[in-house]
């Protein structure tokens, strides 16, 4: 007798019924609100499930707009904006910027960009609400990112750093990037032909102290002596090879 189909069904039903693996149904604002139709605004606000609402509706600007529209059209217009503003705080607590995850910064910038775009199509109250949410998100990202760069200037790749700085700057949340390394500065100054500045920096940093100056001169002398030695060895080797051939 083949037990294989029975075994398969058994495993499948175990997996589906397992509470740890069963997927929770996504939060539906309309379903949740229907049940609380008779609630006063204060009761509604007190019971509002921010931790369930936030992951669902902060995925995109369109979801947030849809949520606000639903609240306004269903008699919750006076508390729609406070709910969304409070949800923004909850969102930032639940999904803070993670220094090891570039995406945690970029996704908030994307949401801010979309909200700024979308708010132009809203009424005045909606525009101020979505601008307020975008402002809260982008202030948080620019602050967190600037703090991260102070501690770890090499956080994220150069391209990622440039991307974040450009996008935040374009939204009027400029971020001070980490200062370039000495080598990068040297390349920039050579490119700009700022020879005087290069000399002044080298002199100020390395040659103004007599001990360092002596050390540099000795090292240069030693270096050139070694180079001359190696070159003469090569020359000798080359002439020997020539005479042999």
């Amino acid at each position: 007798m083949n037990h294989r189909p029975i075994l398969l069904c058994l495993i499948l039903s175990l997996v589906l019924l397992s509470p740890g693996l069963a997927r929770t149904a996504p939060f539906q604002l309309d379903h949740w609100s229907m049940v609380r139709q008779t609630h006063t605004n204060q009761e509604y606000l007190q019971e509002f499930p921010f931790t369930e609402f936030t992951p669902q509706y902060f995925n995109s600007a369109h979801e947030l707009v849809a949520a606000r529209e639903y609240l306004v059209q269903n008699g919750r217009d006076s508390i729609a904006d406070p709910i969304l503003r409070q949800a923004t705080n909850v969102y930032l607590q639940m999904f803070p910027c993670n220094p090891s995850d570039f995406g945690s910064y970029a996704e908030k910038v994307t949401l801010g960009e979309d909200l700024f775009k979308i708010c132009q199509q809203q009424d005045l109250a909606g525009r101020e609400t979505f601008e307020g949410i975008a402002d809260r998100l982008l202030k948080n990202v620019s602050y967190e990112y600037e703090q991260l760069l102070k501690v770890n200037p090499k956080a994220f790749s150069k391209d990622q750093q440039r991307e974040l700085a450009d996008r935040l700057g374009a939204l009027a949340y400029p971020v001070t990037p980490p200062p370039p390394s000495d080598l990068e500065k040297l390349i920039i100054y050579i490119g700009q032909g700022q020879w005087h500045h290069i000399w002044e920096t080298i002199y100020g940093r390395y040659l103004s102290d007599p001990f360092i100056l002596i050390s540099v001169v000795l090292n240069l002398l030693l270096g050139s002596w070694f180079t001359a030695q190696i070159l003469s060895k090569f020359r000798k080797y080359a002439t020997i090879q020539k005479t042999k051939s």
């Binding site: 402002d135 982008l138 202030k139 620019s142 939204l171 009027a172 949340y173 400029p174 971020v175 001070t176 990037p177 200062p179 370039p180 500065k185 920039i188």
Partner: peptide, 24 residues
Amino acid sequence: TEGSSFFQKPVGLTIDDGQVINRV
């Protein structure tokens, strides 16, 4: 302003002829 000589950021709320440069 703040930042290095390679990048300058205006300190505080800055608007230039109606264009917002720094909202913070």
